[in-house]
Nucleic acid binder design. Structure first.
Lengths: 151, 151
DNA sequence: ATGAGTGCAAAGTATTTGCACGTAC
DNA sequence: GTACGTGCAAATACTTTGCACTCAT
């Protein structure tokens, strides 16, 4: 499924105006770039990838600053926190999902489970807690690694 | 429920010997200290708290090094990763649980939900993924903060 | 006696920030 | 024209590491 980037940028533009922020090339470009990267990413990785493309450069600082905005706007999420690494994902147009993380090869598997979501909502109700977002990371060994590795 | 620290230290001693590591005062003390601290903690917090106690000092380096061992041994877990903070918990003797984190006041609420655990196992089976551990963080606003704050 | 553990200070990462300059409005 | 955004380099925060000394075995 490919999302409509034009639509996202139009909405992001509204979001920026609504918050009295400026609609800059960097900000709009970053949406294209992150969407173009097309997979889970870390900032360092993204910085290097963007630098490797001749056009539309965006500095590390602006990337950090814009990622925060895009998180507020809701198209990017911090999906994995492993050791001191932060792995982000462009989630626009995707159903909410959680992740299996292979500690051997680093592979990230996305899964959707409505029942888990429902149970979480129930827990929150029990505690009168208003959930904003959540992160479920299951760390383990993927099928390929458990096949090959004896460990 | 209060855990039997003596028993934990005895087991940790075995663990160290099994791994050809030395059973030092620092390592055993840290178990007492962390258990004595009695709540979720960050390293900086723990360092300061330990420094404030006159006896049994343990350096920051050793704390970091020992926390890793205690995680392997299984009595400590990284339960929350928020921004660039890592919050640990002494989990020995506690049933597995997950956390609600109030983004307003920082309060951490523990909850247990067997059904969520079961569903996670099912997901892992579906993907032939061998789970080792997981972390479920639900971020939101606790009952007290939603009462008081208009935001 | 010996090698692993400890504490310190230095180095390494990841992220944030001050400031001068550029650009959207 | 003005204020916000950007890029750079410096600063910060957290964690790891090299090394000399200490302690468990």
């Amino acid at each position: 499924m490919s999302v409509n980037l034009r639509e996202i940028k139009r909405e992001f533009t509204k979001f920026l105006k609504r918050n009295n922020m400026k609609v800059t090339q960097s900000r709009l470009n970053l949406i294209d770039l992150i969407a173009g990267y097309g997979k889970h990413f870390e900032v360092e990785e993204l910085v290097n990838w963007i630098a490797s493309k001749s056009d539309r450069s965006v500095s590390r600082s602006t990337i950090y600053r814009t990622i925060k905005l895009l998180q507020e706007f809701g198209v990017i999420k911090e999906v994995i926190k492993l050791n001191n690494r932060t792995i982000y994902e462009f989630v626009a147009g995707k159903a909410h999902h959680d992740h299996l993380v292979c500690v051997e090869c680093g592979k990230i598997i996305e899964f959707v489970n409505e029942d888990i979501e429902k149970l979480q909502d129930e827990v929150c109700e029990d505690y009168n807690f208003q959930p904003m977002h959540h992160r479920l990371e299951i760390f383990g060994v993927c099928s390929e690694c458990s096949k090959s590795g004896v460990t």
